[in-house]
Design a protein around this nucleic acid. Structure first.
Lengths: 152, 152
DNA sequence: GGCATGTGGTTCAAATTCGAATTACTTGTC
DNA sequence: GACAAGTAATTCGAATTTGAACCACATGCC
């Protein structure tokens, strides 16, 4: 095994910046959503994805992939949201095994109410701290990072 | 309450890129460390911070702040590492309440053995996907994001 | 058709995480 | 010195997360 290529100063600063920012932003949003909407971030993300989907419904596996979570974790969270009447399940007509998570009216309503505060928090924590060029790097660079990891 | 400032296309792409990348990178590193070193990412980070600290020791609260985790979470993880002989606790001489987490020899040894694979994974997932300008944005922009959230 | 293999989703147990409460100091301040 | 307020760390219970095992069905191939 050859000598590993250690990170130089810039690379290390980039990695640490990314790591700390991701933790702190996650923490902040978690708290904001809990306080203002009574939702965890994973739960809010479920509602957002469903709200954006045609007919407000997505297959469980597809949803788990989008949220970058495990299937069992999604089963749990959809169960929580179902208990609160924000989401319901619908059997897939073409595949008996399949299940759609479907946004209910109150789910859509809650997502709408929660959105402004959430966007404001995202701006304050991340977006408004950066200029347009920096945002472009996140979009392109980190977009590519995400796409690559998706494939492997 | 005024109409919220929604995210425009670039801002949305930046936010989604950041969110997905942080989840996928975290997932990848978690798996790599578990496979190759038998450590969770939080555990590895504890060892790294201790290894870099004078005398290989840091106060619990200070360490929790650096890791962006809760104090109770740190208590748990240090307990796990202690069980495995990778870390030990030392009472603080000047403050009876205080506790240092101290890296043991085998802790240092394991961190050393784990480092090359970890760095390689960080490169493959994130660093080597980006060019120098993009790395500079992560370092500066996300560095600032982290510092701001630290203060609040 | 019949069978091997793959896929979708849930269940389960174990590990982890958090915050609130707790214990035991420390630090002013008078 | 004594007391109020703050701080360090742990404990505790509840919620969450994960992967492995599992069930039921779908698909491809002979």
């Amino acid at each position: 095994m050859s000598e590993p290529r250690w990170l130089d100063e810039l690379e290390m600063a980039a990695w640490q910046g990314f790591l700390e920012a991701s933790h702190r932003v996650a923490r902040r949003l978690e708290q904001q959503l809990k306080d203002e909407a009574g939702l965890s971030h994973p739960q809010y993300e479920i509602l957002v994805h469903l709200a954006a989907a045609p007919d407000g419904e997505i297959r469980m596996t597809e949803l788990a992939d989008r949220l970058v979570t495990s299937k069992s974790g999604l089963t749990y969270q959809v169960g929580q949201l179902e208990r609160r009447g924000l989401v319901r399940r619908r059997a897939c007509p073409t595949d008996v095994r399949g299940v759609f998570a479907v946004l209910t009216d109150s789910g859509r309503e809650l997502q709408r109410r929660a959105a402004p505060g959430h966007v404001a928090a995202v701006r304050e924590a991340l977006i408004d701290v950066l200029d347009r060029d920096q945002l472009a790097v996140l979009a392109e660079g980190l977009g590519e990072v995400g796409r690559r990891l998706r494939r492997t």
